[in-house]
């Protein structure tokens, strides 16, 4: 992981897509996220790393308001996407989630056909005018999910019949089918074998051209391989945020150093 690529990586600064300021999250009385402020750039892969229970997944789920489904969860502070406060009373979380797609830890295709899995989002958002349009969207999404060649002959086979890696790429294709601007990935490779992981990582790098990608990962190697920016979370605090190369080679905070060298976590 400590290879020279990281240092030499070309880092361009893009415009800010998601701006979080002083975000607090409480689960009942438990203060899970404390004063997190972070600016996530467009067309960039941002990795959240940190030990288990540090709040990185919780923070990720704040970005598309998936935490709304948990009764005891309370979010304070300010998260803006393109300048709009997503916790504003006028924002409909359903609309937000179409704009901020999400891929989960465990591949979770619907128990329907591959085609229906991808077509579901566009259907409920009315993105396709007719059947041919929908076919187009499905093909485009599956191509972007880097799975088209493997499934093009069996689009009407059940999505649950695919292998784990294929299922995860199908879920990515399903997420991009609704034309999101941000793609959130919650440990997308933790249930996959190394080969499938490599394919998904390659895909993430591809996706960077069109989306702002935020990925939560347990694997520091993965963060180093796929991301341009890295945020290190520890016990609900955002300890350090910066260029991936800099975080891994020259961390400022001693806790970051301890974590990436394996002394904590």
């Amino acid at each position: 992981m400590n290879d020279m690529r990281i240092v030499e990586r070309d880092v361009k600064t893009n415009e800010v897509k998601i701006a979080a300021k002083d975000v607090q999250v409480y689960y009942g009385t438990n203060h899970a996220i404390k004063d997190v402020s972070v600016d996530i750039e467009d067309k960039t892969v941002t990795a959240f790393i940190g030990p288990s229970g540090c709040g990185k997944s919780t923070f990720l789920r704040c970005i598309n308001r998936m935490n709304d489904t948990i009764d005891v969860c309370r979010v304070e502070g300010d998260i803006r996407i393109d300048g709009d406060d997503i916790y504003d009373a006028k924002v409909d979380p359903v609309q937000l989630r179409a704009k901020v797609g999400m891929v989960f830890q465990k591949p979770n295709p619907f128990p329907k056909s591959i085609y229906d899995n991808v077509a579901y989002g566009p259907r409920i958002h009315g993105l396709a005018k007719n059947k041919a349009d929908l076919d187009d969207i499905v093909e485009q999404s599956l191509r972007r999910g880097a799975i088209w060649n493997e499934v093009k002959d069996r689009l009407h086979a059940p999505g649950t019949g695919l292998s784990g890696g294929q299922q995860q790429r199908l879920c990515i294709a399903r997420a991009v089918a609704t034309e999101p601007e941000v793609l959130l990935m919650d440990e997308p490779c933790s249930a996959l074998d190394p080969i499938a992981t490599a394919q998904v990582e390659e895909l993430i790098d591809e996706l960077r051209k069109n989306y702002s990608v935020v990925i939560v990962t347990h694997s520091m190697q993965q963060a180093a391989r796929v991301s341009q920016k890295t945020a290190f979370f520890h016990l609900g605090n955002l300890v350090e945020f910066g260029e991936t190369g800099q975080i891994f080679t020259n961390p400022v905070d001693p806790r970051t150093e301890s974590y990436i060298t394996g002394r904590i976590g």
């Binding site: 989960f104 979770n108 958002h125 399903r174």
Partner: peptide, 27 residues
């Protein structure tokens, strides 16, 4: 019905009711 199915539906922008009637109820 596994919660991951609900998450999946909400994640692509289905409303609560759509996630229940399109995915949870059939299962």
């Amino acid at each position: 019905v596994p919660p991951s199915i609900r998450d999946a539906a909400l994640g692509v922008g289905a409303s609560k009711m759509q996630s229940v009637f399109h995915h949870v109820l059939p299962l």
